[in-house]
Design a protein around this nucleic acid. Structure first.
Lengths: 330, 330
DNA sequence: TCGGCGCATGTTAGCGCTCACATTCGCCCT
DNA sequence: AGGGCGAATGTGAGCGCTAACATGCGCCGA
């Protein structure tokens, strides 16, 4: 920077001002500085900038590894939103989801002087963590427990699960089976509870529930193998689209057609879901919107709006071809 | 840090040494320092550390946005590998893939004093960029042009595409159609060329090619609609699994069964591919391995091993149920 | 014509750490 | 018992920037 100042015949402070877009710089001066910067290929040192200004322009993201669609797309759109607001992202993925590893991840990020933390881990382990964690910087949860803190961006899971269940009921099915996600994932629990609630409200039998799903197509397939041995199953709500895919596969292998024999509803609406065989009826979650809202939340928090909050994003039912009336419906 | 030093009755330098695990600290002293750190909840400031040491422990990652499976899983496994080696990651995603935006992304990362750059963008636009880009720090390409630079981690695309084509030929198909990826993606080109080469070598007719695929299931579906109107198509090699999925859907809609009427091979082996209907025969790419190799490459480069290189990762053919002999094969 | 006001720019002092070197201390060897 | 050596610790400077304040300069109105 000193070199630039020398070449442009100004002080280093003026260079700094130009770089920061401060007002009150004569155009001629600015041009000289800009030219010098260009000529020298100068690039300012962010570390020094952070050190001196105590602002890092960095926001930390903790996400569960494993490349799940939801967390991944949220992180990606968050990056875009952050970039647009002049922030950059530091990413940490969790190899295992425990309170300890979460805390370690947060520590790493905190050391990097991030200004805020975004936790995209809707896991039970994230709960005590976020509740008690007084880190001195804003923490926002994405897809987390919606009751834990107002600082949350999420899709309305309850509404989504009820929508899915009701859709199946409305088609004439007696009841709706459910293939749930892992029990330690908050969203899996919420969807399960909402499914059960909707069933009860409609005064239907609540079928027995099998845990063990882990969001993967494989686990959906395995649940499907068990389910397809059971008679009387005409409608299934799977906790996500991957599991629905595996389920459909298992059903097909057992000779049960979708949707003629069994109707299936998923959750997420993956880009691929319209092209499953059959195209999947599902609940759409707008993940990119979540990223944007999380960023908006952060900015408000950073401005001191201590209890900012954003409303839940609406879940929407996308009806395609994996659902139909039950086989012997009159 | 001064506070810690005071409390532990040592100098700030000793605190620094403890933090950095320097040898030659008396256990008693170390304990005092550790306790002081704990008591004060002290956390060292990375910015100051970087500034003073000129080492950031940070590696920059540029990846195409849009949440594609490949780039995403590479980035994720890279994060894990980096973490294991004591590095952290700064992530930038590209909203549009042009040389300009690539350069801007690199600039942002460079400002953050990253020690190396990983570019996970197998796009034509990345080519001149990486070739001419003298940034003074190691740049490694993942999934890039394999001839451009030795600093590349990638899966052997040529082998993969030939494997796919030959598998179909071996089953007895006269020729193999191809649904290619976008023409400005290096891998799409390489796969196309290898497919064509394999066909020529077997002295088969090379069917006309339609561009326009963009890796999405939708584009595969659209290509499939055109293809299914064409008679004589019995075998198709799709440039990735998503496109294969869309293709299968289009084929089904046109009343052509997979694999009885038409065989389909994909590329990537998504976690979901075994659960497509039918389970997809495909070429597996080991993306996590790519992340690990990229990290290994970086570490060697950082150690001064200027022209380190790693071999290509082998592509492997996974035979499932979307391929079979042609309908009227004798 | 001159004081004074405000815009443009310069000056100085750290931010919190690490590096290179200086110092101290304990202990062994002769 | 004393010199010397190495292990453990301390000291001072400076990394590249920004914040706060100081200064200079042109121009307006009386």
């Amino acid at each position: 920077m000193a070199d630039v100042a020398l070449l442009a015949q100004v002080s280093h402070q003026t260079v700094s001002r130009v770089l920061n877009g401060s007002p009150g710089i004569r155009p001629g001066t600015r041009d000289r500085v800009l030219m010098a910067i260009d000529e020298l290929g100068y690039r300012r040192n962010v570390a020094a900038r952070i050190l001196a200004s105590k602002r890092s322009g960095n926001i930390g993201v903790i996400t569960s590894g494993g490349g799940q669609f939801g967390p991944t797309s949220v992180a990606l759109s968050l990056e875009a939103a952050a970039h647009a607001s002049g922030y950059s992202l530091s990413l940490v993925t969790l190899s295992e989801i425990t309170e300890r590893s979460l805390r370690a991840a947060a520590d790493r990020l905190l050391e990097q002087s991030v200004e805020a933390l975004v936790v995209i881990v809707s896991h039970r382990a994230a709960l005590p963590f976020t509740k008690s964690f007084d880190v001195g910087i804003p923490v926002v949860l994405v897809e987390g427990d919606l009751s834990a803190t107002p600082l949350t961006a999420g899709v309305d899971q309850v509404q989504g699960a009820r929508l899915a269940t009701r859709h199946l009921l409305d088609l004439g099915h007696d009841t709706v089976y459910h293939i749930a996600g892992p029990p330690d994932w908050i969203e899996a629990m919420v969807r399960r509870d909402a499914w059960r609630e909707e069933l009860k409200q409609a005064r239907r039998r609540v079928p027995p529930l099998r845990w063990g799903g882990d969001w993967s197509a494989r686990s959906g397939y395995e649940a499907g193998r068990v389910l397809s041995r059971e008679p009387g199953v005409t409608a299934v709500f799977a906790a996500n689209d991957q599991m629905a895919l595996g389920l459909i596969r298992a059903l097909n292998e057992a000779g049960r057609r979708v949707p003629e024999d069994v109707s299936v509803v998923g959750f997420d609406d993956l880009p691929e879901s319209p092209f499953f065989s059959p195209p999947l009826t599902t609940i759409r979650q707008d993940f990119p919107e979540l990223g944007r809202r999380a960023m908006a939340l952060i900015q408000r928090l950073l401005k001191g709006d201590a209890h900012a909050s954003v409303p839940l994003v609406e879940a929407v039912l996308i009806i395609r071809e994996s659902t139909a009336p039950p086989p012997f419906h009159n």
